[in-house]
Design a protein around this nucleic acid. Structure first.
Lengths: 193, 193
DNA sequence: CTAGGACATTGAACTAGGACAAGAAAAACA
DNA sequence: TGTTTTTCTTGTCCTAGTTCAATGTCCTAG
């Protein structure tokens, strides 16, 4: 049960088995059915989720009421607001919702503090985790600015081959920043070749 | 000399004066003229810079040879590769260049490790710093996807009023992900109203 | 003080992608 | 099983933004 999350957290920092025991003892396991809202805009996000199984999306709603998907999180990925809502006590601007039946491990700020107090080296692991998401987000920003819709879609399917099967197309369109109709046109064009 | 960086680092975590002394003793001061390349694509980024004075840009070069500016860093901001090049030992994909004569404090991985060893609570401060950049980058991704060029430009000038004076327009265009010509057209249209 | 380069502006022609509408297909559900 | 809701496709028209080229402006080095 803990193997997935343990191999994730030890990817860049190694921990002793007693440290991992502390870590595991502080995790809360949760099962959540699909189409469940985990976080609504305006709430304060007080959790960090590790996805054991299933799929989650995190999204904003823009000025015209359109959803913009920022992140899909599938097996072995972390999701949370990751803006500064916890530290500055500001309400979140994002929504987080399950797309499939999910299994999670959940962290909240208190258990995280407890973890850092009992095993300070986790502070480092979480900093590196953060750094990874920053790198990913930055790469995505670059792709979004510099590539055409077709290129972005190809890139997406290459990078997340399973996801493009599991998730409705209009979600993918929203992630890529294009309309669902145009994505459909891209797909038919690609299929013809 | 140290007031800027000290007030930056104590913004979310408070430190004793002895901790700050350790911190300051590990900083390297540097002056660099404008148009200096600090990092080239393909190199491994082994520094983190705090800008005391001046302006720096960080950018990718896309598949067609066009520059895409990811970040401007001015007074009191941090810049580094922030992708994972240090940890995975991969060459960087970004360029970092000064746009004005600059004054910096520089950190490299070794001094940072030394800092964490001598004053472990800095690990936390750097994690929060990381988290802030992630939040900023994510907000920017959202804006990039969901807003028109005009809106993005207005947002930019509102958020960075000094920067839009200090920096050449085609850099701003590159940051916003639009062509320099179109930015010029937006500006003349806005001036007429 | 001047020549060369970088930067900005403007216009004309073009295109990637959006908005809307309507139908087809596929899931979900009872 | 049929029915309802959600998702996907396709076509037509439209616009935001690009590309290319020409001209103008302003630094800055010599």
């Amino acid at each position: 049960m803990y193997t997935q999350i343990n191999s994730n957290i030890t990817r860049y920092v190694s921990f002793s088995s007693s440290e991992l025991e502390i870590f595991n003892s502080l995790l809360t396991y949760k099962e959540v059915p699909k189409k469940t809202m985990l976080l609504q805009e305006g709430e304060i996000c007080n959790f960090e989720i590790f996805v054991i199984k299933g799929c989650v999306r995190k999204y904003y709603i823009d000025a015209n009421g359109f959803e913009v998907i920022l992140q899909f999180a599938i097996e072995n990925a972390w999701v949370s607001d990751s803006s500064f809502s916890i530290y500055e006590n500001k309400p979140s601007r994002v929504f987080i919702e399950t797309l499939e039946d999910c299994e999670f491990f959940v962290f909240n700020p208190e258990t995280k503090e407890e973890l850092f107090a009992k095993a300070p080296r986790f502070e480092r692991a979480f900093r590196i985790l953060m750094q990874r998401s920053l790198a990913v987000t930055q790469e995505r920003l670059f792709q979004t600015i510099s590539r055409s819709a077709t290129e972005k879609y190809q890139e997406f399917t290459a990078q997340y081959p399973t996801l493009s099967q599991r998730v409705a197309q209009h979600y993918i369109a929203s992630y890529l920043g294009i309309s669902a109709e145009f994505l459909s046109k891209i797909r038919t064009k690609m299929a013809k070749k």
